[in-house]
């Protein structure tokens, strides 16, 4: 019923115009103490769409990403103005339970951070937290998640060895498996491939294209080719401001702003 009231996305020449809007930033500003790190961002992202946030370092793209699962709450002195809505609900409203929110908005970090536990326990961690105790149910979800993240074939014989023994790319895919095991609706990725070699990066990118069928993905990247390859929409940020947002093909071929053009063509950044 609720989708009837959802606004339709107005993407000029995109293929995603049929997607409903899921995430909406409405005049969002964020302060670290006195300094304003995000300046009046207004942006609407569609459901089951891959959106890339690009821009030079320090432009606030990661900070904006972390607003979506309220990871910024962990930092002292952060203050937010405006609204950040998911599915029409303001996630900064007073009665919002952050824990519940984070169950629905998964995250993959820049540096892979598997727990110092076995591979199996890493994936099962979130499930156990949320009350799944049945062994066969756990086994099933762990296998499915590892298959979805294209890791199953590589680790099925050593599920109970330490996750820290995996290679960097495998660790990052494990983190993705861990995130999708609890079936979030949105997955945030904060430069997930920046520390990986080209082959591992390619695998992660394939994986993202695969996951897009089921999840809404927001990815922060400083790799322009990567953004062009995997995203449907792209938002370009510069010193805390949203400069331009649109279909990826348009941003990379025919941007309407001069700064965007300079950045995507590699003239600065």
């Amino acid at each position: 019923m609720a989708e009837l009231f959802m606004p339709k996305l107005n993407v000029p020449e995109g293929k995603n115009s049929e997607h409903t809007a899921l995430i909406e930033f409405a005049d969002l500003s964020l302060y670290y103490g006195a300094s304003k790190a995000l300046k009046n961002i207004s942006l609407t992202l569609g459901e089951k769409v891959v959106t890339a946030f690009i821009g030079p370092s320090g432009c606030g793209k990661s900070t904006l990403l972390r607003c979506l699962n309220r990871m910024n709450d962990l930092i002292d002195n952060v203050r937010i103005e405006g609204a950040c809505k998911i599915g029409g609900h303001d996630i900064y409203a007073k009665d919002v339970d952050v824990i519940e929110l984070r169950k629905r908005v998964g995250m993959v970090f820049q540096k892979s951070n598997p727990f110092p536990k076995s591979i199996y326990e890493n994936v099962a961690y979130g499930l156990r937290l949320h009350g799944v105790k049945n062994k066969s149910e756990l086994d099933g979800i762990v296998e499915k998640s590892l298959r979805s993240s294209a890791l199953w074939e590589e680790v099925k014989d050593r599920l109970h060895t330490s996750a820290l023994g995996l290679s960097g790319g495998q660790q990052q895919r494990l983190c993705i498996a861990r995130a999708i095991a609890i079936k979030p609706e949105i997955i945030l990725m904060d430069e997930p491939a920046s520390a990986l070699d080209p082959i591992a990066t390619a695998r992660i990118e394939d994986l993202i294209l695969d996951l897009k069928k089921e999840f809404t993905i927001v990815i922060v990247t400083h790799n322009m080719q990567q953004a062009a390859r995997i995203s449907d929409q792209t938002a370009f940020f510069y010193i805390g401001e949203l400069v331009e947002f649109g279909a990826t093909s348009k941003i990379f071929t025919n941007p309407s702003q001069k700064r965007t053009e300079d950045y995507v063509s590699g003239r600065f950044g």
């Binding site: 990871m71 169950k103 951070n113 598997p114 979130g126 995130a179």
Partner: peptide, 19 residues
């Protein structure tokens, strides 16, 4: 990063500390 990972999976602070 370990604390962040746990919190991002929807663990409470107490669960993160304990586990």
């Amino acid at each position: 990063g370990l604390r962040e990972a746990s919190l991002a999976l929807g663990a409470t602070k107490l669960e993160t500390i304990w586990r």
